[in-house]
């Protein structure tokens, strides 16, 4: 009873466990490139030729190139075969030198086991020579103690290093500059159309076509930056200006507002902006309402914002005056001035 129980345990539990530990996935020789080494037992039956049945063992290398393979000499010279399935190697009939005559070998198949441990095959041959003719057969039995070859290590192609957000913006801005040049040309051509009455339509259409083909790729580049960081100041400013140039005022305002609210324009940044602009205008000191009627009027108008911006009602934010000043400047200021005068840490 104890013996039966032991057998039950062995077959019910241990064998499956052992099987799971030693079983390998089936090998497919037709997908392999490389070499395999075999000990091949060759049994040749020459009895029909008045000879013996003799057996030889050869150390043989097979060179695999996926669906083809070259088997080393097992008595009738090396031969090239083609895998007709994952583990069946087919050799076509061939005639080999077999002094003093020749032997014509039949087609034959070599069957490999899926654990790479062995193969077997058999063919017939017809000898013909000065000493007569006869037929015989040869069987092949190969063993491989090294197991299946290790799977090749696949090295994924190296990807170019990802650009930093700053580099991505710089690349997009280069295209954006080209786009603004084209839009400047377009405005000038439209103006000439208006003022001189001479048709510039052909040139206008050509420039518009170039704009239409360039802008989708520009937007895709900025979108990639903003997908990773929606508050990226420079990307938002650039997109705001692009949308403004496209006449998409609502989108312009959304990007501009996000840039202003990004926190990038700190007090020190704003200070740097003012100094940069003052220097550009040739001011030794900042102009102030206290000593300039023009500045007083500008300040009054900022404070009495009428809400119009490209026909939209843009609410004036009363809580943060400095942020409001920035937004007004973003509304009317040249974008080159905004970006180059800001040093964002």
């Amino acid at each position: 009873m104890r013996g039966i129980l032991s057998l039950f345990i062995l077959f019910g539990f241990l064998l499956p466990l052992l099987h799971a530990q030693v079983s390998m996935p089936p090998w497919n020789w037709s997908q392999y490139s490389g070499t395999s080494q075999w000990q091949v037992t060759v049994t040749e039956d020459q009895t029909a030729c008045h000879g013996p049945i003799f057996t030889n063992t050869y150390g043989v290398i097979i060179q695999h190139d996926q669906t083809t393979a070259v088997m080393g000499d097992v008595g009738h010279g090396p031969a090239t075969g083609t895998f007709i399935s994952g583990n069946v190697l087919h050799f076509r009939s061939r005639t080999v030198s077999d002094p003093p005559g020749t032997s014509t070998l039949s087609d034959y198949d070599i069957y490999f086991t899926t654990d790479c441990a062995s193969f077997a095959g058999e063919y017939t041959w017809d000898y013909s020579g000065s000493d007569g003719s006869c037929s015989g057969s040869t069987s092949l039995s190969g063993t491989n103690t090294q197991g299946c070859p290790a799977p090749p290590i696949v090295i994924p192609p190296s990807k170019p290093p990802e650009l930093t957000p700053e580099e991505q913006v710089a690349a997009a801005r280069s295209d954006l500059n080209n786009d603004f040049d084209l839009r400047g040309e377009l405005k000038y051509l439209n103006l000439q159309n208006l003022l001189t009455g001479e048709s510039q339509d052909a040139q206008i259409n050509a420039v518009q076509d170039r704009i239409d083909s360039l802008e989708p790729s520009i937007e895709a580049k900025y979108k990639k930056v903003l997908d990773a960081d929606p508050n990226n100041f420079e990307a938002n400013v650039d997109m705001a200006e692009l949308k403004r140039s496209q006449g998409l005022t609502h989108e312009y305002y959304e990007y501009m507002d996000r840039a202003a609210n990004s926190g990038a324009v700190t007090a020190s940044v704003r200070d740097a902006m003012e100094k940069s602009i003052a220097r550009e205008l040739g001011f030794s000191t900042f102009p102030k309402p206290a000593n300039s009627l023009l500045m007083r009027k500008v300040g009054t108008e900022k404070g009495n914002w009428q809400g119009g911006l490209y026909g939209m009602d843009v609410p004036k934010e009363s809580s943060d005056k400095s942020l409001w000043d920035i937004k007004v400047y973003f509304t009317v200021g040249p974008w080159e001035g905004i970006v180059k005068s800001i040093v964002v840490n």
């Binding site: 704003r270 902006m273 003012e274 602009i277 003052a278 550009e280 205008l281 900042f286 102009p287 102030k288 023009l294 500045m295 500008v298 300040g299 900022k302 005056k321 400095s322 000043d325 920035i326 007004v328 400047y329 009317v332 200021g333 040249p334 001035g337």
Partner: peptide, 11 residues
């Protein structure tokens, strides 16, 4: 336009 716009940055 550019000069007036620049002046809006000053408080």
């Amino acid at each position: 336009k550019d000069r007036l716009a620049d002046l809006t940055i000053f408080p």
